[in-house]
Design a protein around this nucleic acid. Sequence first.
RNA 1: CGCGGGAUAGAGCAGUUGGUAGCUCGUCGGGCUCAUAACCCGAAGGUCGAGGGUUCAAGUCCCUCUCCCGCAACCA
Length: 516
Amino acid sequence: MMTKPNFYITTPIYYPSDNLHIGHAYTTVAADSMARFKRLTGHDVWFLTGSDEHGQKIERAAKNKNQTPKEYVDHIVDGFKRLWERLDVSYNDFIRTTDERHRKVVQQFFNTLYEQGDIYKSAYEGWYCTPCETFFTEYQLADGKCPDCQREVEKVREESYFFRQSKYAERWLKFIEENPDFIQPVSRRNEMVSFVNQGLEDLCVSRTTFDWGIQVPFDPKHVVYVWVDALTNYISALGYGTEDEELYRKFWPADIHLVGKDIVRFHTIIWPIMLMALNLPLPKKVIGHGWLLLDSGKMSKSKGNVVDPHVLVDKYGVDAVRYFLLRELPFGSDGVYSEEALVKRINTDLANDYGNLLARSSTMMEKYQQGVLQTPGVPEGPDTELIDLATKTPVLVQEYMEKCEISNALAAIWQMVGRANKYLEETAPWTLAKNGQTERLNTVLYNVAEIIRFATVMATPFMPNLPSRVWPQLGIEDKPELHTWESLTWAKLPGDTTVKRGEVLFPRIDLKSLEV
RNA sequence: CGCGGGAUAGAGCAGUUGGUAGCUCGUCGGGCUCAUAACCCGAAGGUCGAGGGUUCAAGUCCCUCUCCCGCAACCA
């Protein structure tokens, strides 16, 4: 038996200082659709997500609620998981930085780096705002004052451990030169290269001013600080350094770390350098996607304009919300969210083009053929063009997905759907029926049914609930062999399939109803 | 003068090596009647940010200017 190729994809681990918004949902749904696509096309997939639970912010937030940090994060992380379930996110594992399995690996890494001299003790100099109990760097200060409360800050020195990342700058630059595709999109890579060219400083990797974190094994008053803790999740979750390293051996290095553009730097510089220092293989690719912006600017809690994904799912359904997110953000660029844009997408693409294609054609099949398809005759006229397009589209979609261009992949599928609607006008089956041109009628309706099957198979990774609603209408719910990627060869659909007109897939939404 | 990217129809974007400016949505007109007032066809609408230059020919190359946006280190 042939072994499947492996594919390992990750999302960032989100910080549970608050509930997640639609932006986080975008990242995770995008990763999910990649994971589902790879599974559909015959890969052995490992899809990881999780939560980054340590730090002063969490410690303080818990205190405000009179909870232990652990109680506090448990609650929020439950919310993360509920959201992912709601959005049909098919993760294989959920790593929490408070997991025991994670702690061990972080401590081991810290030890190793320390023993080989890549971590050393020094002092972290910063500015401290006593009322806010927060450290700021020189760069963060606003006019020399606290950026939060505008009061005076004082210079303090804190004993800290540092990671000698500056030592690896040359090696990093060489790596990027040899692996130009490592950072996507290219614009981000250029930013990172110029950042490193400006000179890398060593990285502060421990703190003594709070306790909520992983202890530095050889110096217990220190807690491991941020990135060494957080980034390690990508391999601690695979059981690296434990008695069972099977997943690690199988899936590392990761194929894709999918991250938002705000954390590209940490994933493309700190993480690879850490791995270099540890002599471990580097991930193959880091993709920094854009943000979903609001008309009113960036989404932020302080602006009170955060969009809750639960509300959207309640209102419009999972598949529609997923489709919108995946279709609306071109690769690497920002997209704009507005409820109007969402509804427009649902109406034009899902209701008018795709849903209506199924509705109109299934009606004709019932009306003119008693619901039973017939074997198609010899292709003529526009048939060839339609069939050609259907044959090419899966290849195109696969190419786009290889480049992680999800939006383009969807556009390609919908181009085929659009062609099918046009095909119906060209062939006018209602006229064929009237004139008793049965053979031609059979061919036309068969071709459209087959197009719908193609579109639905290809759309599955993006809208996982679609197939279970479409297959019964197409009469192939009991034929799993017709639901696979491999089945996307023309005319696989049996000639005697029984079609049954069913529910409207995506009802049109009245835009005016939004203005209430 | 920190590095880099933009400025193209009402909106959002494509425009390879320079040779009659395209796509999606929206608007208007027509067609069809199988369909979720859906679908198909057609039209209007752009001095391609401003100015200068190279060229037979520039959105596409060069220079200057204006305006936007990323990155510029320890909040994830």
